[in-house]
């Protein structure tokens, strides 16, 4: 379960990151959309790392036990 959430968050981070790249290319320099996507990606990353810490602390994930 936690693993699915982790993967979903990772996907969201990737989408935000590459949306930033897209806006970097397409939008005029005055646009703030690149900045905004990158803010979203930092936010998600923060959430993800917090989740990882909580999950490890609560024993939801056992570090280094994938596929077992």
């Amino acid at each position: 379960m936690s693993k699915i959430v982790i993967l979903l968050l990772l996907t969201a981070i990737l989408i935000a990151l590459f949306a930033g790249l897209y806006f970097l290319m397409k939008e005029p320099a005055s646009s703030k959309r690149t900045l905004r996507s990158l803010m979203v990606r930092v936010g998600f990353t923060f959430v993800l790392i917090t989740l990882l810490l909580v999950a490890a602390y609560m024993g939801w994930i056992a570090p280094h036990a994938v596929g077992k």
Partner: peptide
């Protein structure tokens, strides 16, 4: 800046 975010991800 974007490149730095990429490296971070």
């Amino acid at each position: 800046a974007w490149y730095w975010h990429f490296v971070d991800v």
